[in-house]
Each structure stands twice: as C-alpha cells, then as structure tokens.
Design a protein around this nucleic acid. Structure first.
Length: 495
RNA sequence: GGUCCCUUCGUCUAGCCUGGCCUAGGACACCGGCCUCUCACGUCGGCGACACGGGUUCAAAUCCCGUAGGGACCA
C-alpha cells in the first residue's frame, strides 16, 4: 500500500478559525495514524484578499495547536503556470474548449430559461465550433473562458465517499463548467485538483461544502489521467441559527488565537474540536494525542452538521461550555510542570511572574498551582481569580464583600486580632493556624464560618476558594497578617 | 429555482448497516443530596430526545414510502 498523503489547504483571508482547525486536525490525525504525510498548502490565489498577516496567523495557529505538517507550506500562486498548463492540456485533448459567449448573452438565456420555468445549464453554443469559426473568433481578439467538456452520454460520475457513502451524479446534470476565467486565471476547482495531483494526495479530507463540487473534480482527475484520491467529507460546524460559523458573522469567538489568548490548552481545544462530528464509538471523550490517533477513523465521522454551542453575551460561559469543561479537565489533571509552563505567560502578562518560580520557589509555585487549579477553567484564571496568590493589587468580588464582610462589621476588630495571634504562633502550619482561629472564635463566641469566610475574602478577595488554611500557607504568614490588619481598607471598598 | 445531503435529550453524541439486549446509553449544561470553613473536585440521584405521518413485521430509533424543517452545491 502506498504512503498516505493528506493536505490542509487554507485560504489566507483571515485568521485560522476553529472550523478550519478541525479540518486540519482530522487530516493530521489521519496522517499520524497511518504514518503518512500532511501537506500544508496555502491557497493564496485570491490576491485581493490574501494577506501576509493571515498566512502568519495560520502558521502560528497550527503550531500552537501542535498540528505539525510534513511538507510545505506551499503556495498555490507558485504553481500558476502549472494550472494554466493543465487547462491547455485539457484543451489539447478536447476535454475542454474555449467559450466566447458573453456574460450578457448568458444572463439573457438564463433569464429566458427561468421564465420558461425550465432548468438552465450552459447550452453548449461554443462546444462544437468549427475550426475556422474558432480561429476567426480568436483572431478577432474576443475574450473567452475555458469550459470543461462534460460527457454527453447518459452515464454517471461516481465515487465513494468515506463518510457519505456512494455518490453518483448523472453527466446530464452537470453542465460544461468553467475552468479558466476570461482574464486567464484558472478557477479554484481546477487549481485544487492540479495541486492535489502534483502533491500526490491520496486522501482528500475536507468540509462537506466541497461535496457538491466533487463530481466535477472527479471528471477533471479522469481527464487529466490521474488516479482518484479517497474522498472523505466532514460535516460543517454551525451556530445556533444553523449558519456556518464564520469570521465575518461571529468574529473572534471562532478564531483559534482567541482560545490561545483566553487560556486554552492547545490539546484541550483539539480534543473538543474532534468531538464536533466524530466519536470513537464508545463512551470515551477525553483522549491523549496517542489515544485519539489510535481511535480515529474516517468511518466514524458523522454525517450531520454540528452546532457550536456558544451564546453571545452569556455571563457564565464565554464559549461552548463543553469546550470549557474539557479545558478545565486538563488544567486539573495535567502534570504540574507542564501546567506551570503554560501558566507562565499569563502571569508574565499580568506582571505577576517571578523568575524564582523556576528556581528557588519552584516547589511553592507547583504546590500553589495544585492548590488552586481545581476550580479554574482557563489558564488566565491563574492570573485573575488567582491573583492574590502571586501578588498584590487583587480585586475584591462584589458578592464576596456583600456576603462575607458588610454583614459582620465587627470583623474590623476580630481580623486584626487574629493577625496578632497568627504572628504569635511558634509554628505556622495548617493545623496550628486552624486551632488558633477556632480558639479565637470560641473566645469571642463567634461562629467559625464568620471569621473564616471573612478572612477568605480579605486575604484572597474572593467568595470561594481552596480550603482556607491551606490557602493561608500558600500566601504565607507575612502577607496574610498584613492583609488581615488592613481589613479597614476592605470595609472602605465595600462602601 | 434545480440537484444532493442531513434530522436521537438544550448542546456534543452512542445505538441504525446486520429489527428484539432500548422502560434509548454516555458527556457537557441545569437541579437536588452527600462531603464541607466557602466554592470547586469527587460521588449519588433527578430533569431531559428517537422531527411528523403512514406502511412492512409477532416486534421499528433501527427497514420502506411520504411530509415538514435545516444545510450544502449549482444558478
């Protein structure tokens, strides 16, 4: 069996979006599974909309996701001559012909067909022009497009899609489609086939929006004398309105870089994306790379479109809740050294990073991450909700002030008192701190919850968090007592 | 408009090919219990779907026909 070669051919007309990323992922998984090669080809023929930033963004996105490619990036524009040569070859073999019909003429005919309620397809006016007639038209400098000559018999074009099954289309239902525009530029339909032939692509794994064009492409493969690749079309990802997710309509929320900046773990995003339209056939949903490569098959790709479940302006979930949940799972289960490295850029950005976290304070750094990671959903949470552990200047949650502070004005006496007791402790560990705090509660005849929760808010700014006495250790006696003594400031904030 | 494709809990899905194991399984989300210094984790439980209508069959989510809805491509 020959080597598996797949490709990912994005158009550089914007950032890498998650739908494209999923296509790239499926191709990558397939290549990895069969020890094949993934070819990255930038389809930059639309010069007006293609930009260098976009190319860079796509490459960065792929790298960030960990989807490495084996060849490329190739650029479609580099092969312009080859695309034109293929068109010439089809002309030479009489599989294509020059068509001089003007746009106006075709529009008129289309309109007439509509009024007559008959189906419109190109009528083949130029298909059988006599030699001299053709020569005369070329001579006179008339503009022309090149059309592919669809077989006129009552046969069919057929192929077997790995996902959608056997697809058959009657020749009579395919009109003589254009392969080269009047300005001489070849159409996507042709370029794509020529490139896939040159790159010796064995499996075309792409979005189901390519399904409709596949019969035409099959015709091109045959006319060009090339072997057919295996086709596998994957369902599209839609929004709640059943509209294809797109950069234009949805903006950043569909951009891969958005997830990077929001604190997603690359593989967590891949894991989530893989599940949109594919399942292993059992109940597994979380995979390591190797597990997913092993489990992945084209046959288990779904046929129905899936909905990317995000609601605009949802206060609780900024994106699909399942994506967040998958990300949270990785945050709380991954190795601490890996997590530490992923959190680092977020702390740096928030100016909370201390180089010693990779040196003398490494142990503290890791144990603190472990302590707080359980309730976080994104890497960014470490720098925001977790700010009190890494530095000063943290915010106080409105709800926390209301519930834990304002209700108990006497905390302004109790908390500084508690700070003094903490300072007096020979040893400051979770047990001694807790015993000390509870003893004070007994003395004051206050419920422990009042003091503990008040302390939580003053020390961490939050309504909820890890077990209080463990949190105290992570923050350290000095910072704890300092914050407790400044309880007055917190009351001031609470208004 | 033409051609093709799709339709199982709110969302992602298993089951469909090879009808009975399906009083339809899992995950996320939601609700409640336990745990508890709070929240989370964990755990236990709950809510919740076979688009609709016919047919075939002893038996249909599963097979057939039709309808509706959605999507893609072409124009």
């Amino acid at each position: 069996m020959s080597e598996v070669r797949v490709r990912f051919p994005p158009s550089p007309t914007g950032y890498l979006h998650i739908g494209s990323a999923r296509t790239a992922l499926y191709n990558w998984l397939y290549a990895k599974k069969y020890g094949g090669k993934l070819v990255l080809r930038i389809e930059d023929t639309d010069a007006e909309r293609s930009t260098q930033e976009s190319i860079d963004g796509i490459l960065e996105g792929m790298k960030w996701l960990g989807l490495d490619w084996d060849e490329g990036p190739y650029f479609q524009t580099q092969f312009d001559a080859e695309h034109k040569a293929a068109a010439q070859k089809l002309l030479d073999s009489s599989d294509a012909y020059k068509c001089f019909c003007t746009k106006e003429l075709l529009d008129t005919k289309r309109e007439a067909a509509r009024e007559a309620k008959s189906e419109y397809g190109y009528d083949g006016t130029c298909r059988n022009l006599a030699e001299d007639e053709l020569a005369a038209k070329v001579q006179s400098g008339l503009e022309y497009v090149i059309r592919f000559k669809t077989p006129e018999d009552d046969g069919t074009v057929a192929f077997d899609d790995e996902v959608y099954g056997h697809i058959e289309k009657k020749h009579s239902e395919l009109e003589d489609f254009v392969i080269v525009r009047s300005n001489g530029s070849p159409l996507y339909m042709l370029c794509n086939v020529v490139d896939d032939i040159r790159d010796r692509i064995t499996h075309v794994i792409r979005g189901a929006d390519g399904l409709g064009n596949t019969p035409r492409q099959v015709l091109l493969y045959k006319a060009l004398g090339a072997p057919l690749p295996v086709f596998a079309h994957m369902p599209l990802t839609l929004d709640h309105q059943k509209a294809k997710i797109s950069k234009r309509k949805h903006g950043e929320i569909v951009a891969v870089h958005f997830y990077r900046d929001k604190g997603f773990i690359p593989w967590a995003l891949c894991n989530f994306l893989a599940l949109l339209g594919w399942s292993p056939g059992d109940d597994r949903e979380l995979f390591t790379r190797d597990e997913m490569i092993e489990a992945f098959t084209l046959k288990r790709i779904n046929r129905s479109n899936s909905i990317f479940n995000y609601k605009k302006d949802d206060p609780k979930f900024f994106t699909d809740p399942k994506a967040l949940s998958v990300n949270a799972h990785y945050i709380r289960t991954m190795a601490l050294d890996e997590l530490g490295a992923l959190v680092k850029p977020f702390l740096e950005k928030a100016e909370l990073w201390d180089a010693d976290y990779e040196g003398g304070k490494k142990e503290w750094y890791f144990s603190t991450l472990e302590l707080i990671r359980e309730r976080f959903h994104t890497l960014n949470d470490f720098a925001e909700a977790g700010r009190a552990y890494f530095g000063e200047g943290f915010e106080f949650e409105e709800r926390a002030l209301k519930k834990n502070i304002v209700k108990n004005p006497r905390l302004r006496e109790w908390l500084p008192l508690l700070a003094e007791r903490f300072e007096a402790l020979d040893e400051f560990n979770p047990e001694t701190a807790e015993a000390c705090a509870r003893a004070l509660c007994d003395e004051l005849e206050v419920k422990p919850g009042v003091i503990i929760n008040g302390m939580r808010t003053v020390v961490t700014g939050r309504l909820a968090g890890p077990s209080m006495f463990d949190a105290l250790m992570a923050i350290g006696r000095e910072r704890v007592t300092m914050r407790l003594k400044e309880v007055e400031k917190v009351f001031a904030l609470a208004g």
